[in-house]
């Protein structure tokens, strides 16, 4: 019961802080003081208080986009175990629902972008779906490999199964999976080297360009949804990359929060030391990630 409440609180309150940590890390690398850690909360609260402007060419799809996206990601957040604690909802085969909830979110974001009729947003939508259909196989192959290792189809079992002992036994394939999943994590959350979340240059944008026409509360929901997606996929990643357990429940929650903060710092470091990839190189890296995870599966299967 207490774990369930903490799960909900973490899912609802933590996400913007991760974005704040990433921004702060990037500022530290650039030698600036940077925005306060809580700035994303202020931004979202400010946006929620504002009024909305809807273009007359848009339909209900445009208004539904941010809501459905956020709802889908919130549902996905109930399926993923945080730290060593099982998820709130779990059943056989929930890993497929988990992957396709992100698909649903993406579909509605892209549809809302197409609904504006702006060729500019259409371009962003095309890029987004192209890259995500290359990233999806990686996520699936990685989950199937882990399902095979743990012998279960429940996300809660799959993601709490890895232990340091398992790492020692199948180190190579686990390492390949972690590398592949990190690439997916960066691609799905539109971080550098795939997409620059801070840019507003038309030629380089992918995700940002799709949400240009949203304003006020809708845009606030989009920002919050993006942060939540980072938390959910980050929880999936840290469950495999740092499979340590202390034994005590509260200490495990602390460990989970610390590992998420460490992940945010790691993403900030990647964003500071790397440049954005050219668009033609992105599919190459994503296919490379798929091959890494397929290779991991091959090593597990034999």
């Amino acid at each position: 019961m207490i774990d369930g409440i903490i799960h909900c609180l973490v899912v609802l309150l933590l996400p913007p802080l991760l974005i704040g940590i990433i921004t702060k890390t990037k500022a530290a690398f650039a030698g600036r003081v940077g925005a306060p850690l809580l700035q994303p909360y202020y931004d979202i609260l400010k946006l929620l208080r504002k009024g909305s402007v809807f273009s007359t060419t848009t339909t209900w799809l445009f208004r539904a986009g941010p809501l459905v996206t956020l709802a889908a990601i919130l549902t996905a957040s109930l399926l993923v175990p945080l730290g060593r604690h099982p998820a709130l909802i779990s059943f056989d085969g929930d890993l497929i629902l988990f992957a396709y909830l992100f698909g649903l979110a993406r579909f509605f974001t892209a549809s809302a972008a197409l609904d504006t009729g702006s060729s500019f947003e259409g371009m962003g939508a095309a890029r987004e779906v192209t890259f995500s259909c290359l990233a999806e196989p990686t996520l699936f192959v990685a989950l199937i490999t882990l399902a095979r290792i743990s012998g279960s189809l429940r996300l809660s079992t799959i993601l709490t199964y890895p232990t340091p002992a398992l790492w020692r036994a199948t180190g190579a394939s686990m390492l390949l999976l972690v590398a592949a999943l990190f690439i997916v994590l960066l691609a799905e959350n539109c971080r550098i080297p795939f997409d620059d979340p801070t840019t507003h240059l038309e030629l380089t944008m992918i995700h940002e360009v799709m949400v240009l026409d949203h304003s006020g509360p809708a845009f606030g929901l989009i920002l919050y949804g993006a942060a939540l997606k980072l938390l959910v996929l980050g929880a999936l990643f840290t469950a495999i990359a740092l499979p340590v357990s202390t034994g005590s429940d509260l200490a495990d929650w602390g460990l989970f929060l610390a590992s998420m903060a460490a992940l945010a710092v790691a993403i900030g470091v990647v964003e500071s030391v790397m440049a954005r990839l050219r668009l033609v190189r992105i599919p190459q890296l994503l296919v490379g990630a798929t091959i890494l995870s397929a290779f991991a599966m091959l090593l597990v299967l034999r």
Binding site: Q284, V287, I291
Partner: peptide
Amino acid sequence: YLPTLFLGA
């Protein structure tokens, strides 16, 4: 490169 990478896999 992408097709050869795929073929290699």
